[in-house]
């Protein structure tokens, strides 16, 4: 990709070098070419820049643990609320806490990219980056 870009860039001044100030359409063409070239050059970098940065050590630990803890906490909270209002005292907490653990594990697997999201068109941060943006 980089090689072809470089070749393109080297070839273009040679091709357009004969008439650098031809007029308005030449300027338009050059601007268009610049835009496409910039897009082509930034496109290969895009997935690694805006996908997930490669976090290391502490950042990774905070990220994954927050995903897991959040799942468990929300499960416990839902169970507590259900028990409080439906009077099913131990069962809501037990079931939702277990579901919360599942959700926490799912969150962690998703955020590491081990499990791609099953819903098409959502969460573009997973492994199939950029294929379903539109």
């Amino acid at each position: 990709m980089v090689d072809s870009n470089d070749a393109d860039r080297n070839a273009n001044p040679g091709a357009g070098g004969g008439n650098p100030e031809k007029g308005g359409d030449s300027l338009e063409a050059r601007r268009k070419r610049l835009a496409t070239e910039l897009a082509a050059r930034s496109a290969p970098e895009a997935p690694e820049v805006e996908g997930r940065e490669k976090p290391q050590g502490f950042a990774l630990a905070v990220k994954l643990s927050s995903e897991f803890i959040a799942g468990v906490l929300v499960g416990a909270l839902l169970g507590y609320i259900l028990d409080r209002f439906a009077g099913t005292t131990p069962w809501g907490m037990i079931v939702f806490l277990l579901l919360g653990f599942c959700a926490g594990v799912l969150n962690v697997l998703r955020s590491t990219g081990a499990v791609s999201t099953p819903v098409p068109g959502s969460r573009s941060g997973s492994t199939d980056q950029g294929t379903h943006n539109q």
Partner: peptide, 21 residues
Amino acid sequence: MIEVISFLSRPISLSVRLFAN
């Protein structure tokens, strides 16, 4: 159910991550 809990856990993990860092 798991998907719903996973969705509801997003604001928590989002806020905990920024705050903890």
